[in-house]
Amino acid sequence: MAAPEASMSLANADTPVSVLAALRRRPLFLICVGIVAAFALLALVVPFLPVDPAVLNPLRRLRAPSMLEPFGTDHVGRSVLARTLWGTQISLGVGLAVAALTTLAGVSIGLLAGYIRALDMVLMRVMDAVMAVPAILLAIALVALIGAGPVVIVVAISMPEIPRMARTVRAGVLVLRELAFVEAATICGGRLSTILLRHILPSVAGPVLVQATYVFAAAMILEAILSFLGAGTPPDVASWGNMMAEGRQYLEIAPWILVFPAIALTILVLAINVIGDELRDMLDPESAR
């Protein structure tokens, strides 16, 4: 009796009161949600702020942070603050798009592979093959093959993440498909879509959500790495990876060019990872407090 009750702890948190109470016990989660929300707000309002990432001012290049330029200027005199703020858009946008694409593709593949035995072998061997290629190599190869562009970058970063998501979902489905309530759904005449979407998917939503936050964070780092290597966002776009790549050459005389986007990326990735950890703890009945 204890086991089924415990697995329902997710559903137990369906009243607003218990959700609020649970959140109050997790200040770190709230702080990190606040940080991510602040970055998201910045990304949304930055087009309306009086900051331009593209204005060149060669006379005022490589200036250290000051009252006028809080983050300093880069080697062609562009405002590091303006570029860091605009970079938020790229990082969050890529992260969100990759998380969404990975979840959609990974959940679909995982559900089908886990439930339909005949598809399992084929789908999961393809996933294994994708997993065997290092993520960055695969992304660089795709970008080199098709050419850099927002869609290509998102797809290139998503590809290596999809197998992990598919595996997570498949593992859950393999357990769930044997449970009595899923068999009952079959006996009650449920179509494949009903069984997968109505009876199985809600029970794997927790792990999927957690996995999606990790993908979100990993995607932002991967985007920065790709830009840093020159295989990502075009160099004229203000992305954190591009800024760090350019700042690397001036690290000894103007460290602020590299440091500020790096700090922004670190804080955002850390916050999202902490959210993922906290979500995992909250959704895991074993560690429920």
Binding site: M1, P4, S7, M8, A11, L179, A180, F181, E183, A184, A185, T186, I187, C188, G189, R198, H199, P202
Partner: peptide, 19 residues
């Protein structure tokens, strides 16, 4: 045709979708 043959399960907690 499954509508003509149905089942009552052993564990009534496990055979109902908790959601």
């Amino acid at each position: 045709r499954r509508q003509r043959v149905q089942m009552v399960f052993q564990d009534p907690a496990a055979c109902l979708n908790a959601r």
